[in-house]
């Protein structure tokens, strides 16, 4: 049984800290199940992080003591369809990522498109998912000098994460490609608004350079 730490985040919120991203995902899934079953009175936000889950709007003062005693079933992978995202692997940092990975540049798309990702958490901008799935030895550092403008749709890596920029912004992630249909990432008029919500499984599919 691994340790669950419950930290206060003000009078009405709890930050649950787990030992790993995997455990945080499993705990998040359990929270969603319990809320769907009518539990977690008052909780209006359940926000997963890299190794944490934030519960905002907690009314039950005994919850902090009870959370560490929960039985958390292991994460059930493989349920439902993976979201497929066509991308073009032609980013300016392909060579740098290949160097860090110790492979030929042509191998980067093959490895990346051969990986099943999962949205660990969101943030930075609406519709931006932090995707995990690459093995630990394929972590890449952020660029030493961030770019002042990363275009919308940029497919990029940093640390253990992959992400697609939903709109132009400054950014320090290593860009390995682009998603031509970037508008599909985020549409507040659609239900669900985000293509990549927490827990979603994702595969990138290499498309022709003409996209």
């Amino acid at each position: 049984m691994s340790a669950v730490r419950v930290l206060p985040a003000g009078p009405r919120a709890l930050l649950v800290e787990l030992q790993s991203g995997e455990e945080a995902e499993a705990f998040h899934a359990e929270l969603l199940r319990r809320r769907a079953d009518g539990g977690l009175r008052g909780v209006r936000e359940i926000v997963p992080g890299a190794r944490t889950v934030l519960l905002d709007g907690v009314e039950d003062r005994t919850l902090a003591d009870r959370l560490p005693c929960w039985e958390i079933p292991p994460l059930h992978r493989g349920a439902g369809e993976a979201v497929e995202i066509p991308v073009v692997y032609d980013g300016p940092d392909l060579a740098e990522v290949a160097r860090v990975w110790g492979v030929a540049a042509a191998e980067v798309p093959r490895i990346h498109a051969g990986t099943e990702f999962r949205v660990a958490f969101c943030g930075f901008a609406p519709g931006f998912g932090y995707l995990t799935g690459l093995p630990g030895h394929l972590r890449v550092p952020r660029r030493a000098t961030p770019r002042t403008r990363v275009p919308a749709g940029a497919l990029a890596l940093a640390g253990p994460y992959t992400g697609v920029y939903p709109r132009p912004s400054p950014g320090g992630w290593q860009i390995i490609g682009r998603m031509p249909e970037v508008a599909a990432l985020w549409d507040p008029a659609r239900e669900p608004a985000a293509l990549l919500g927490p827990g979603a499984r994702v595969r990138f599919v290499a498309a022709g350079a003409g996209g």
């Binding site: 992080g49 944490t52 934030l54």
Partner: peptide, 10 residues
């Protein structure tokens, strides 16, 4: 610190 959720007033 690995990214984590933030509340209003943090």
């Amino acid at each position: 610190l690995p990214s984590e959720g933030i509340v209003l007033g943090a």
